[in-house]
């Protein structure tokens, strides 16, 4: 399956990307559309809680390295923010989901636990701003899933294999496509947004301090959702990605293979081996 084919089918049948994904999943896995929607509804509920929890109360990670940032940001953004209400809410939600994850709270891996804040933050902030019904958001998550399916088939979604571009980059692409569909954009525009999001995260390395899903993962989720919203906003304005989505996935796949092992979730390079990164890792060891 590739985006070019999917866009063509959707155009011919006059259906949305989420309609396409729903039918395909139902046929291939012999599961009713109702059940798929129910399960995505359950995921949405978990996302809603995760996106709220750390904004309302400061929570800290198991290691003690991180925490409290979603709360801090929420306090300020309620008064003022450079980003405006939608984007600042998205940043706050992304931080919250990621902090909940680091504190051993319940999240939805989408596509991974390390990138679990991006898709929820994008769809939930847009839902609030545009007052969209819950059913629409569930469909948005399915649209995000479809984009991830294509990336998973032609590249990969694991930091250990493809670096952070495969996790936060993929999540941004998934979120961007979902937002475009939610706001009435065409399937082609969704994939333009996804392509732009991938282009903006190409080459991003996976370099977690002490090997934990915290530094820089939490803040990269905030950056990732901004990437997604920026890409969606451009695509909705009619901006086209000169490099089509399928090609960007191919590039991501090749770039991932070219990344040295040290930059693929081994904590042997990048931020993990900075002076401070090493000091933090050492502190944890001695505790």
């Amino acid at each position: 399956m590739n985006a070019q084919t999917v866009i063509k089918i959707c155009q011919e049948k006059g259906i949305s990307l989420s309609d396409f994904a729903l039918s395909q999943e139902s046929e291939q896995d012999n599961i009713s559309k109702t059940e798929i929607l129910t399960r995505f509804g359950q995921m949405l509920s978990v996302m809603e809680t995760a996106a709220r929890t750390a904004r309302e109360t400061p929570i800290h990670s198991v290691s003690g390295l991180t925490g409290g940032d979603a709360y801090l940001y929420e306090q300020r953004r309620k008064k003022r923010s450079l980003l405006g209400s939608t984007a600042s809410k998205a940043v706050a939600c992304a931080l919250s989901c990621s902090e909940v994850n680091a504190s051993m709270g319940r999240i939805v891996a989408c596509p991974t636990a390390g990138s679990c804040g991006i898709v929820p933050a994008a769809v939930l902030s847009v839902q609030e701003e545009y007052d969209l019904p819950r059913e629409a958001i569930v469909k948005g998550l399915i649209c995000a899933g479809l984009v991830g399916q294509i990336i998973g088939e032609h590249a990969c979604l694991a930091g250990a294999q493809g670096g952070c571009q495969a996790e936060c980059g993929s999540a941004s692409a998934m979120a961007a496509a979902a937002v475009v569909e939610l706001l009435g954009g065409s399937p082609a525009q969704s994939f333009d947004a996804a392509a732009i999001a991938i282009k903006n995260s190409l080459g991003l390395v996976c370099d977690p301090v002490a090997g934990l899903v915290e530094i820089p993962c939490i803040k990269r989720n905030a950056g990732g959702v901004m990437n997604a919203l920026t890409a969606a906003d451009m695509a909705l304005a009619g901006i086209v990605s000169r490099i089509p989505f399928d090609d960007t996935v191919d590039a991501m796949n090749r770039v991932g293979r070219q990344l040295p092992t040290a930059l693929r979730e081994t904590a042997a390079g990048g931020l993990a081996t900075t002076k401070t990164g090493l000091e933090l890792a050492e502190t944890l060891k001695n505790r």
């Binding site: 680091a102 319940r106 939805v108 891996a109 399916q149 998973g152």
Partner: peptide, 14 residues
């Protein structure tokens, strides 16, 4: 991959 390979599982982090 299946849609559920991409979205989910619901899990306790991190």
């Amino acid at each position: 991959p299946s849609l559920f390979d991409i979205m989910g599982p619901i899990m306790i982090g991190p």
